[in-house]
Design a protein around this nucleic acid. Sequence first.
DNA 1: TACTTTTGATAAACCGATTTAGTAAATCGG
DNA 2: CCGATTTACTAAATCGGTTTATCAAAAGTA
Lengths: 325, 325
Amino acid sequence: MEKVTMADVAKAAGVSKSTVSQFLNKRFEYMGEKTKQKIAEAIDTLGYQPNYIARSLKQKRTSMVGIIVANIMHYFSTEVSRAIEDFCHHHDLHAIVCNADDDPEKEKKYIEMLRAKQVDGLIIFPTGQNNELYERLINQDYPVVFVDRKVENVRGFSIVTDNQDSTYKAIQQFVAQGHRNIAFAVQPLTVSTRKERFQGYQKALLDAGLEMNPEFIVESDISEMKAKLERLFSMEDRPTAIFCGNDRVFLVAVEALKDKGIKIGKDIELVVFDNIPFAPLLETPITFIVQPASEMGTKAAELLFEQMNKVERDPVEIVFQSKLM
Amino acid sequence: MEKVTMADVAKAAGVSKSTVSQFLNKRFEYMGEKTKQKIAEAIDTLGYQPNYIARSLKQKRTSMVGIIVANIMHYFSTEVSRAIEDFCHHHDLHAIVCNADDDPEKEKKYIEMLRAKQVDGLIIFPTGQNNELYERLINQDYPVVFVDRKVENVRGFSIVTDNQDSTYKAIQQFVAQGHRNIAFAVQPLTVSTRKERFQGYQKALLDAGLEMNPEFIVESDISEMKAKLERLFSMEDRPTAIFCGNDRVFLVAVEALKDKGIKIGKDIELVVFDNIPFAPLLETPITFIVQPASEMGTKAAELLFEQMNKVERDPVEIVFQSKLM
DNA sequence: TACTTTTGATAAACCGATTTAGTAAATCGG
DNA sequence: CCGATTTACTAAATCGGTTTATCAAAAGTA
């Protein structure tokens, strides 16, 4: 294992630690040419590599930001994370991704761990069940940006999409095509995104003068979703169109439909809220509500970066538009 | 921002820093009941949170391991990383994932960065172009495990699959089905996995007494793959079966086939080396060569963990078997 | 010549924990 | 009752850098 320290370099070059430090930080203001040379040489021959931990301790920053994703299984999360990483990379930051697995306890653990590791800021896809914790971070002026989901009663920066509106439009399209039996499949309505999408659904039906049939609404965990959907599809007067709350719901729905021998595009129309990477492979015509994940990630990173650099600004909520495709 | 330090806690509790440190590390051997209470109370009222950076500096370990993935776009990488993360999570370690993007320069940068951050070990999907660097790490007894690809002339731990053998079997299957025109699409033969797969292909043809047609071998970057494949599919005596070197090649191939109006399973048979998450959605019967990604990730983590704990052991190469599905 | 300014480099404090060696008080054995 | 041991706690060194205050020598100025 390595053990070459700055003191070793200093000794080898015949200068002081301070000078080596200046050199490494490119503070050449008042530094002799030969001194530079000697240090460079010593670093080279010793194979010295700086210890960022020591530096961070003194500087009180780590050049790391944390991303806490509610559930990494959503392709959307990956896309957003990638965009954040790219931004970080361009600003000499390093992003650490943690997966809360939709578990508020895990989320809390990760937030605390990342803070203990002194990361300089956090981008959180909030589970929404740690409000006092979120609030504490913000009150301590710790840089935080929320993504994807809103957090009630906490005034922080957040980046979301127009969930209600785009769902409304999707359902409206179904109605325009003559559909009357429109189903809605979603995971438990615990977070803002799902609630808003559901509101969009309700409103669209209401505005179209259609009655909402509670049997057509499947609110369930992924684990039980398939069974419930199969029951739904076995109904006599079964849905002719279905809205899937996200990509994972979609996957289950496709399986259930396959098992039941119902053909998408022929026997039933389908809309998914979320982009699907393998979409081009599918032969069936499916409508996607695509969120501008990259833009959202980049914006989140920008807002975080601002906060990290102490730019004073009132918290804002930025709403991006999704697209029907 | 926070600023409560251990010294503050010590003062508030009326004890010394040392005692607080013992408390935090649960070394209660010789600690009075009331002292414990006082410290716990002080920590609570002050809202103290330890600084892991400071601890790491002294302890010379960070409880972090780095994963350097050659290209995060492969689903296989994600699966392996997930398994590693799980293992780490159970051993109170934290995994940091970096994406080298198939770029040896980036890979080098990340390796150096992670070492500077004092991560306790590295799991690398090597690009294969930084051999002296790999060697240096190993010579310094720095814990390293290579995954997916072999590194020539470097004696370190590595976890791979039987690329040649499973490709051989897949091609053999094609031959048994009566195929004569078997194409092979792959990214540039720069890394061991691709080379071995190609060898499997060659050997299978040879053993079957078939001549290898150079026109059926498409070796290309993803960016130009599609055009080349379309040219291949436009041939008069076009392939009736094709082997795709990995999931990304597969995606491009499917697009190209779609554009050409060639139906998989009907006009052409297809094998992919790699699992595809959305496989169940596809209606076409495709053969996958599935690598046991989770097991591989777990094993890699185990081997790294051993090294981190100074278990002496000669480097081994562990070969997992893939399955045709 | 005498004084100020610039240039080049350093000693020492510091960041916030861990850890070792050590000390005072309480307990014990004979 | 005295020396040895155990219990409870602490001072101070340490990890490997950064940063500030300071200083000596060289150069500039009047």
